[in-house]
Nucleic acid binder design. Sequence first.
DNA 1: CGGATAATCTCGCTCATCAAGATACTCTCT
DNA 2: AGAGAGTATCTTGATGAGCGAGATTATCCG
Lengths: 182, 182
Amino acid sequence: MTGHGMYRRRNDPRGRMVAEITNDLRRYSFDAQHVGHAFAGLHGLNATDLQALIAVMEAELVGEPITPGRLGEVLNLSSGSVTALVDRLERVGHIRRDRDTVDRRKVLLHYADRGATLAQSFFGPLGRRTDEVMARFTDDELAVVHRFMSEMMRSMRAHRDEVRAARGEPRRGAAPDPTGDR
Amino acid sequence: MTGHGMYRRRNDPRGRMVAEITNDLRRYSFDAQHVGHAFAGLHGLNATDLQALIAVMEAELVGEPITPGRLGEVLNLSSGSVTALVDRLERVGHIRRDRDTVDRRKVLLHYADRGATLAQSFFGPLGRRTDEVMARFTDDELAVVHRFMSEMMRSMRAHRDEVRAARGEPRRGAAPDPTGDR
DNA sequence: CGGATAATCTCGCTCATCAAGATACTCTCT
DNA sequence: AGAGAGTATCTTGATGAGCGAGATTATCCG
């Protein structure tokens, strides 16, 4: 999944370039997904656990610790799944729970040392590889790349929201999907 | 997940740009993953099923229908999981199995009309969005983006192979280009 | 207080995936 | 031609992530 460009066999140079960029983006996302999966497996976690750990760290580094509810929104998980997820991560010492002092219904998630170390060993090698690639580009070139990725990211995010919103709406086309939905 | 740039708080302009590109790439991949998941759910599939369908179509469009074994390598699934996966997709009419006439141990996977229609409705809207973004870039700018994404993709693929190798077992018969398009 | 609202957690179930082993077919060598 | 080794796929049983409905705990307000 994750990307497109499978058809689109235009023959002008620009058309080919668009197709290749599209394919590279798709492959990059696909591989990134598998890196996460494999790395998580190496450390006794699953892909979701790793994503969650990263989300918890990001939130806390920005100064706004995340709640289980919000984490569920970010990862698109049910509340029951989030509880199980947080249990798993807490049990192995990657994160910990704290009650919010202001609104004591809320639980705030904080990363523990063990989690920080793990994230470091995930991002470290990845960052080194990224730096190697980026070193081959001038400031002006990186500025172009930045503008591009920024717009592509926004575009994909909008698309994600649209597809998610399509849930629960009348389903057109083909088979009635006996299992309902997931 | 997958990506990085969470730390790296350099303060020079270039450092900030690198960090932002990195973050956008990570978010793009993350969202792309969720688009696939949500779209699949809408159609009674899971994320893996959709990836598999795409891989089957890609292989056949290139003229080399994929086998279950190869599909398992691409998706990094066990043989048992692949059988179940292919069963699911065949049952709902997205793909079909054919025995290879030359080596009758092999099974070749082909997409069916229903699968093609589904893929179309997945890639169509995505492609439209992508075109909108790319239209805002000149040929020269796209050439820079192309060079960048190509190198980033290769870098991520190498990293994936490295992380996978750190586990039990490398791919047999060399594993060039899973998701291989082209 | 009592009711409404909100956030999180509990429980029973489903289903994707794995690991190991069974089966089916092919290839090589004598 | 047949035995044995090799390869591809399929079968089976177990595990565990995730869902969804309802229970629990906490806050806020009249």
